[in-house]
């Protein structure tokens, strides 16, 4: 896989991150390393191997529709870097998504 500027821009946009030009050079190197490492897996023939999604054969692991609130609002908000007594605060954004 070719790591070019377009790919880095695309990934940056998806991750909502901004990089300087020097950072982009570093990221390009890192990504190339990661890809070439992963590409070693291509050496293995997996033609007749089904993809492994689940680590065991369990099915139908469900819960009944019962309400439980193990944590309080204060506990919930305590991990947010910025918050008031009710809300988590994040940098202002107005864009829409699908």
């Amino acid at each position: 896989m070719v790591v070019d500027d377009k790919l880095i821009s695309h990934l940056a946009e998806l991750a909502k991150l901004e990089f300087s030009d020097t950072e982009r050079v570093e990221i390009k190197k890192d990504l190339e390393k990661i890809f070439s490492f992963m590409e070693q897996l291509n050496a293995v023939n997996t033609d007749n191997v089904a993809p492994l999604i689940y680590v065991n054969d369990d099915v139908d692991v469900v819960r009944e529709d019962i309400v439980d609130h193990p944590i309080t609002k204060e506990e919930a908000l305590s991990n947010a870097p910025i918050h008031d007594s009710d809300y988590i605060k994040v940098p202002k954004f107005v864009t829409h998504r699908s």
């Binding site: 529709d65 019962i66 309400v67 439980d68 609130h69 193990p70 609002k73 009710d86 809300y87």
Partner: peptide, 23 residues
């Protein structure tokens, strides 16, 4: 439903913010 799809928090409408959440 009474609780959320993947966790047991209540689904009641109109509760004060961030009171119906879990880990």
């Amino acid at each position: 439903t009474k609780s959320k799809i993947y966790s047991a928090d209540s689904t009641e409408y109109g509760a004060s913010p961030n009171t119906q959440i879990s880990a």
